[in-house]
Simulated assay, not measured.
Amino acid sequence: MDEVLDPDSDCGRVYRSLVGHPRASTGELAARAGLSEAAVLTTLKELAAEDAVVAIDPDSRAWDAVPPAQLVEALLQRDAVRRAGLRQAGAELERLYRFARRDAGHYGALEVVEGSTRVLAAVRHLQQSARREMRVIDMPPYSGSPEYYPDQESLQRERMASGVVYRVIYHGTAFDDPIAGPNMARMIEAGEQARTLDEPPMKLAIADGELAIVTLAADDHHGVIALLIRPSSLFRALANVFDALWRLAVPVSVAGADTQIDARDRQILTLMASGATDDAIARRLGLGRRTVVRRVSALLARMGATTRFQGGVQAARRGWL
């Protein structure tokens, strides 16, 4: 639960109040955190489930914080486990890919498709077969013809209108790409859930729990190949890779694709990214605290960020800092 270290989140305010005021009651915490007692109690239960706080009497009337050093170490260990899982899944994919190139017939869950036209046709068929969800990692190079992209947008709109949820992770440079940038903005506006990640490891599309396609550059000639993976240990590994990357990626909003920002908001974002509090930003820029809070909230919503940290990452990726 990274929010526990964010001083502007409910979890962060409650945890910080307990750090400075041990054995505090829910009423005392509510007064210090600026929340209702009901909200504080809900937050405490969430923190307790993450082993960030403990109730110190049988009726949970008084609480205390787990030592911050212990909490940070637990968060770092959790992140290390998640990254280790990604490496393991990637290693398994690499081994199976190389095995498949030697003799695809020995691994029944995998089929190799070669050539841009056949690969794009396979991706289209994959989307048409989806009934619940499409999970996609979209990254360059883009191999379709100019006619492919309007057709793809039309297909995705049809699938989303029929109830298929699209969750897409874009490469961190997508905002500046003449192909991916405008497409991303239109699809988000149509209902796509989008996030960005600096360096995704692969180009991937997964339809429900039925079929996955990994698109790769061909090793021995110009062009691309696709690996079609059916339910198997490899399929589960790819699904786990996507889910882990989705948690690491930064959300994007419709307005997030807009690269325009005024000078005052740029100053606020720069100070926010440096760790300045709302009070410090207000003093530095000669603004009222409420004005800063309102503008920070609007900027985070514009970027689709849920924390100040995510906001700083998104602002940096857009070149706003």
Rank of each mutant, 00 (worst) to 15 (best):
T117D: 15
R295A: 10
V313C: 11
Q127Y: 05
R78C: 12
A257W: 03
S232L: 02
P201V: 00
R317D: 15
A121C: 01
R159F: 08
L155T: 06
D51L: 04
A130I: 00
L271T: 08
A62D: 10
V66D: 14
D198A: 12
E210T: 04
L76I: 01
L227R: 05
D208T: 08
L300R: 03
D79E: 14
A316D: 13
V81P: 09
R23I: 05
V40P: 10
G20E: 15
Y166C: 11
D219Q: 06
V164S: 14
L29P: 10
T173F: 05
V112C: 02
H222L: 05
Y97K: 06
V40D: 13
D2W: 00
A24E: 12
A174Y: 08
A48W: 07
E147N: 06
V112A: 07
L155W: 08
D258L: 01
A122F: 02
S253F: 06
L228W: 07
F242G: 11
E46Q: 09
E28A: 11
A161M: 06
V112S: 08
Q267Y: 02
V252D: 09
H222P: 13
A122N: 05
Y166E: 10
A255H: 08
R32N: 12
A89C: 10
I213H: 13
I206K: 04
M202S: 11
R236P: 11
L18F: 00
E158G: 03
F175L: 14
E50K: 02
L197G: 09
Y97I: 02
A316P: 08
S145V: 06
D10F: 00
E114M: 04
R264S: 12
S36E: 14
G12P: 10
S17Y: 04
D279H: 06
A255E: 15
E192V: 05
I281F: 01
I56R: 02
S154T: 07
L75P: 13
L47H: 05
V165F: 06
I188P: 07
S162F: 04
E73H: 03
R283P: 15
L44I: 07
A298N: 10
L227A: 12
F175T: 05
R230F: 05
Q310K: 05
A180F: 02
S253T: 01
L211D: 14
L234I: 04
E3T: 01
I179F: 02
P178Q: 03
L76Q: 13
R78I: 01
L299R: 01
R83E: 15
A33V: 00
A207T: 04
G172E: 10
A130P: 14
Y142A: 07
V214S: 13
L126M: 00
V250E: 11
T270H: 11
P140E: 09
L35C: 07
V165P: 11
D176M: 08
R124Y: 06
G172F: 00
R82T: 10
A301N: 09
A174D: 14
S233G: 13
G209E: 14
L120S: 08
P231F: 00
F175P: 09
I56C: 14
C11K: 02
M160D: 13
A69S: 12
T26E: 14
F99C: 14
Q267A: 12
D138H: 02
Y15L: 11
H106R: 11
S9R: 02
R78A: 13
R247E: 15
V292Q: 04
L248H: 02
A38S: 13
R157G: 10
P146Y: 01
G223M: 04
M160S: 07
M139L: 06
G115T: 00
G105N: 09
